[in-house]
């Protein structure tokens, strides 16, 4: 049986929880063999492969996975704090370059002190540095230098999550109101 080009790297990256970006040569191969890989990951690992126009990643049904949660907390806090400063956080995350000092500044002055202090990935500057390293390995951010980074299109997954979360909450609130 012939396997697609970069098969080993594609499977390796996705199973390592990495996002494969459209700028990566592997992405085209993955997209061209979307049916095969969709079935492959479903049958072998019970993972769902999601291929968007500019990135692809695996979805696990393991809902208590801690890293995903920490990433959500981090991006959620970032959006909240940027909005508080009167910035359009979507534009910022899509186009702006961040540096770790700015992140430290935002999180250290955040009103979500308890949440940050109790999170091992975000509690201090050193932990955040490690955490950004993880995000970089997973292709969620792109490090431009030791301290500076930009977000890759993978950030959209988390924005969709927040949007769906709001919809779910609004729907629940609506049902509650109806019941009252």
């Amino acid at each position: 049986m012939d396997f697609p080009r970069y098969h080993k790297e594609i499977v390796g990256d996705l199973l390592d929880g990495k996002f494969i970006l459209a700028t990566d040569a592997k992405f085209i191969e993955l997209k061209n063999n979307a049916d095969f890989y969709g079935k492959f990951f479903k049958e072998t690992f019970e993972f769902y492969l999601d291929i968007k126009s500019d990135y692809a990643y695996l979805i696990s049904e393991e809902t208590m996975e801690m890293l995903s949660r920490d990433i959500c907390i981090f991006i959620g806090l970032l959006c909240y704090e940027l909005d508080k400063e009167g910035k359009n956080f979507l534009d910022e995350i899509q186009y702006a370059e961040f540096d770790s000092e700015m992140i430290d500044n935002l999180l250290d002055n955040s009103s979500y002190t308890d949440l940050i202090m109790n999170n091992n990935q975000l509690k201090n500057s050193e932990a955040r540095k490690q955490f950004l390293g993880t995000l970089n390995r997973r292709n969620i951010i792109d490090r431009n230098s030791d301290k500076k980074f930009t977000f890759t299109p993978a950030y959209k997954v988390f924005m969709d999550f927040a949007k769906n979360f709001a919809k779910g909450k609004l729907a629940t609130a609506g049902t509650e109101e109806d019941n009252e």
């Binding site: 959500c72 959620g76 909240y80 979360f165 709001a166």
Partner: peptide
């Protein structure tokens, strides 16, 4: 959409 996302984050956080 931006505000919808922010609502989601605030609820999640």
């Amino acid at each position: 959409s931006e505000s919808m996302i922010l609502t989601g984050w605030i609820e999640f956080l």
